[in-house]
Design a protein around this nucleic acid. Structure first.
Lengths: 192, 192, 192, 192
DNA sequence: GGATAAGCGAGACGGTACGTCATGTCTTTCA
DNA sequence: TGAAAGACATGACGTACCGTCTCGCTTATCC
């Protein structure tokens, strides 16, 4: 019986907005991403954006939720050799963070989270949590105590370091990546 | 002799601008900090700001350079007990980062660095480097090899983690601080 | 087989629209009268208005046609004394035009006629013609030549003057009304 | 001592705005005259218009004050023959009011006065008063009593009738003009 | 000590984007 | 098939800042 009255929301418009936003974000960065530009590029009325999103951050958040934008790096494999798996994955993450376009996205989203409205931090959490969770899971699989809270600390340290280095304009080198994984894994090996 | 002709730059105006910028930054955050507002609050013509700084980031950078804004936390003491010293300092840093106003500044400057113009990353480096250097120095003093590059990695991890947790809206707890220092120091104890 | 297929037009909706339009017109004036507001107040879909009227002016025109809005002043009596009848009626018309709400309607409809779409002048004619015709009829009853075209000129002069004075923000006084009727009746007494 | 500080108002911009407004008014009518369009055509920032005028009506009012727009018809001559002079002038006024572009202006300004903000009626008065005053003066020159208040009533009747006929979409014919002047002059000849 | 020069507060300039409002059209469900 | 609901693209509104450009005034050095 209940099926909402009135014209239903246009899925086409929704997708066009998200596409346009991601394109412009990659091309120009977050601060030069304007609602006007998104609307124009998407071929959509400005009011439509305000109706459903209301802010740049909301649009980007939805793009993140749909997986159009992510920061997790590649998936983590489990070969049984934790040290090798983690080293490889961290190197890959660092390499991704070294890419210019990827960096633009990181900066854009960090800016969104930082200058941020109410939902901005949630956005950031959503953005990094898939990779974060995957990392914790892989660490737990190789750990003596899979519930050790230090696993989360280690994962925070990995993402935090990558982010920090991007923001200082000095992205990590593969050596720095190796040093970090070594440090953290050795630390985790010891009892807390 | 050449001692520049014309009216010299007004130190009073310079200070008023920096004061106003810091006040507004703390009060409203970086994105709501406008040149207009700074000029008005400082009782200064807008052109004067453009003449000497040219952008929001430049003003904030100068405030950082003058020590009006810093992110380093307290100074690191050296009692001979590296573990205790580092644990105490990290807890203090984390406590500082838990303060609402301090958090506003962190977010503000992160936003500046992230959505960032040309000088933004340098600004960020300048902002964190005093604390970063002090941390590396203290670590070196207690390390078997004071030139170990992993010292920098550890310092990056500390600052990166604090930053990352602020951005996700979940600032670190004292326990998380302890876990992180334990992890890193244990890692550093082992040979690379 | 019934003549008209489908759901018949809702008389209730039609009346609600006209009521709402007149209310809003009196309250806010013509320029602040919006289709949106009429639809909302009438509890009617916007499309219903576009289907049957298509413009603000059309709605107002229908309200005029139904006598919900008029500008004619009172009815003209015929006591046999043309001068007295006309003088009394003109005074009444002028008094009506001095009323604030009545003035709002006059201004509203004049605006409609002036900035007007295609039908606006027709609206204006419909609005004033009942009073105009009644006035010509009364003049004809007292005139030596009931077909004298100057009767229409005199009627135009009466309505035009009232309108003009309202628009200049200086509504007529009873004395001015008397002066005008005197002028016109004396003029009509003389042969053309 | 006092000489206003800051950049002085640009006369060029002011003139460009007035020119653009008059052009667009003549071309499109008052309701299709938008601030946006005026700014664009004048090559002026929108804010500049809002700074000095704040509304369409204010711009038009200033154009009227500067004589760029008027409704008075031609000047009234005084050949000694009042009847002939007035008949000629009224015919000219009616002829002018029959011109399509002139009519657009009349409608535009009537709309402005009618849907009108605070200053709109003053605008209308300013618009018609030069012609009105000239007419009263000419009537006074031929009248037995130059202070007769009926002279103003007659002038109001002339302008009011012309306006009314334009608004009803039935502009006056030369014959109607003659009828009106005849009516009023005969009325004025008789004692009040 | 008068000329020259540069910085100063003030404030207007042409712009861009904002977020809101109303328009007229279109598309759904319900009666 | 009419009517309500309500989303759609469009475009003007008035505001806030942007970065630039005159102004008159002030404060310095230089001839």
């Amino acid at each position: 019986m209940n099926a909402r009255r009135g014209r239903p929301r246009s899925e086409q418009a929704r997708l066009a907005v998200l596409d346009a936003a991601v394109d412009l974000l990659r091309a120009d960065g977050y601060d030069r991403l304007t609602i006007d530009a998104v609307a124009t590029r998407a071929g959509v009325g400005r009011q439509t954006i305000y109706r459903w999103w209301g802010s740049k951050a909301s649009i980007v958040a939805e793009a993140v939720l749909e997986g159009r934008i992510s920061l997790g790096g590649p998936a983590i494999v489990d070969t049984g050799d934790l040290r090798a798996d983690l080293r490889g994955w961290t190197r890959a993450l660092v390499a991704a963070a070294g890419d210019a376009e990827e960096q633009a996205v990181i900066r854009a989203l960090t800016a969104a989270a930082a200058d941020g409205g109410a939902d901005a931090d949630a956005l950031y959490r959503r953005l990094t949590s898939p990779g974060h969770e995957a990392l914790v899971t892989r660490l737990a699989a190789g750990a003596s105590d899979p519930t050790d809270p230090r696993l989360h600390s280690a994962a925070d340290a990995v993402f935090g370091t990558v982010l920090y280095r991007v923001l200082t304009g000095a992205p990590m080198t593969p050596d720095a990546a190796d040093a970090l994984t070594g440090l953290l894994l050795t630390g985790l090996d010891a009892p807390s």
